[in-house]
């Protein structure tokens, strides 16, 4: 037996046949291993019930100008603010100001009176203050993040502090007057 193996090893053709079988086995093993590992990894991605909660409908009919509410969407706060005429004007005027993440106010809203933002500071994920009466609103009358001092304006744009980007605007649609779907 052992002699046969050695004899065939010396033979060029037999040895390449063995190499092929060896590589084919390895490849099949790697394929099977991958096919098993992928479900393990993918099981840690958002599950169907989590994805099913990825859009919400909010009744905004009762929010008067100057008021804002916070709703939870995908586990994060979303700021919905009914802006006053003064705030809209301020935001538009600031289009020309020095903006670290330049964006016009008109590009951040669908209807000027409704400003809808993901209320998560783009620095390290804290929730900026400014939703409640009496909260500090920062130097630009919008929001102020207490963690590391980022100031956002009345359009939710970053004006001062370490945050690199404006507060994100989620995808949303006005379904009817007074109802908005986020996500």
């Amino acid at each position: 037996m052992a002699d046969e193996v050695q004899a065939s090893d010396a033979d060029g053709e037999e040895s390449s046949r063995r190499d092929f079988l060896y590589l084919a086995t390895l490849a099949a093993g790697a394929g099977l291993g991958g096919a098993f590992v992928w479900p393990l990894i993918d099981s840690m991605n958002p599950a169907a019930d989590v994805l099913a909660l990825s859009s919400i409908e909010v009744d905004i009919g009762s929010i008067v100008a100057g008021q804002g509410i916070t709703v939870k969407w995908r586990g994060k706060p979303v700021f919905i603010r009914h802006r006053t005429a003064g705030e809209i004007q301020q935001a538009r005027a600031d289009d020309a100001a020095e903006l670290p993440d330049r964006q016009a106010d008109a590009d951040r809203v669908e209807r000027p009176e409704w400003l809808i933002l993901v209320g998560v500071c783009t620095h390290l994920g804290c929730i900026p203050l400014g939703q409640k009466t009496g909260d500090p609103k920062g130097e630009f009358g919008g929001w102020f993040c207490p963690c590391h001092g980022s100031h956002y304006d009345t359009s939710g744009r970053i004006r001062k502090g370490p945050a690199p980007e404006n507060l994100a605007v989620p995808h949303y649609t006005f379904l009817a007057d007074g109802i908005v779907r986020i996500g």
Binding site: W38, P39, L40, D42, S43, A47, A48, D49
Partner: peptide, 13 residues
């Protein structure tokens, strides 16, 4: 039950 129905490949695992 959620593992079997909602989690990705949960039924398999």
């Amino acid at each position: 039950d959620r593992i079997r129905r909602d989690v990705n490949y949960g039924w398999l695992l």
